[in-house]
């Protein structure tokens, strides 16, 4: 696919003696939402980590926006993650001692945006995710669903081109999970960000445009299977 924003080809990764990826393929276009599904332990999170440049695959290539991610240094990939990628995880991702607003503003501040401006922009995103009233609260004082919305706001505050969401609703009930997904998809669509969504729930995967299934470290593009 020529217009792909981020793609991985023939990715292999082994932890110790356990193979996590064994020839996985992946591609995503700008503004696209792609779900990565599969049983636990199939390697879907590892695929996400490789694509996001958090983990370097043992072999294979990852291209992002014309650049070869696997050839970049650790520092270069960190810088890329700061500027171009957003992240939402299942839990344990908010810094407990910072207020919600400070959490949201954190990625901007890591990009050397001045505190005032970072927090103003953070607050805008909190408004869009309907959690502006939690700005002064700390993560320990809010519910799980609110926490995930804060996390979504934090992922989107730098206007990333790719959002990586690893089981973003895994710890939430259906109602909160659906709400978070709607907000995430809506907000990402409005900024034309692509979303790489790892989930094991079909209802959550149904928010995607396309899904691939990872089994035993191999990926299968279901659009082609159909």
């Amino acid at each position: 696919m020529t217009d792909s924003l981020l793609s991985g080809h023939d990715l292999h990764k082994t932890y110790g003696s356990t193979p996590a990826l064994a020839g996985a393929e992946f591609t995503i276009r700008s503004g696209e939402v792609v779900a990565i599904m599969g049983p636990s332990g199939s390697g879907k999170s590892t695929l996400l980590h490789c694509l996001a440049g958090i983990v370097r695959p043992d072999s294979g290539t990852i291209r992002y926006d014309g650049r070869d991610l696997t050839a970049m240094s650790d520092g270069g990939r960190s810088a890329l993650r700061r500027s171009d990628f957003g992240f939402v995880f299942q839990f344990g991702q908010l810094v407990p001692e910072l207020t919600c607003l400070e959490n949201v503003a954190l990625p901007l501040r890591l990009n050397a945006v001045k505190r005032k401006e970072a927090e103003a922009r953070g607050l805008e995103w909190m408004e869009r995710l309907e959690v502006a009233d939690l700005a002064r609260k700390r993560p320990g004082e809010i519910s799980g669903g609110q926490g995930q919305r804060i996390a979504v706001a934090r992922a989107l505050v730098i206007r990333p081109r790719v959002v990586f969401a690893d089981e973003p609703t895994g710890a939430l009930d259906s109602l909160n999970g659906e709400r978070v997904m709607q907000l995430l998809i809506g907000a990402a669509r409005s900024t034309d960000a692509a979303i790489v969504l790892v989930t094991h729930e079909a209802r959550i995967a149904a928010y995607s445009d396309r899904e691939i299934v990872v089994r035993d470290g191999r990926s299968r593009d279901m659009a082609r299977a159909a």
Partner: peptide
């Protein structure tokens, strides 16, 4: 540990 990994994912520098 978990939180540190998340911060790394966000591209937080070691020095920070």
């Amino acid at each position: 540990r978990k939180l540190l990994s998340v911060l790394v994912a966000f591209g937080t520098r070691r020095s920070t």
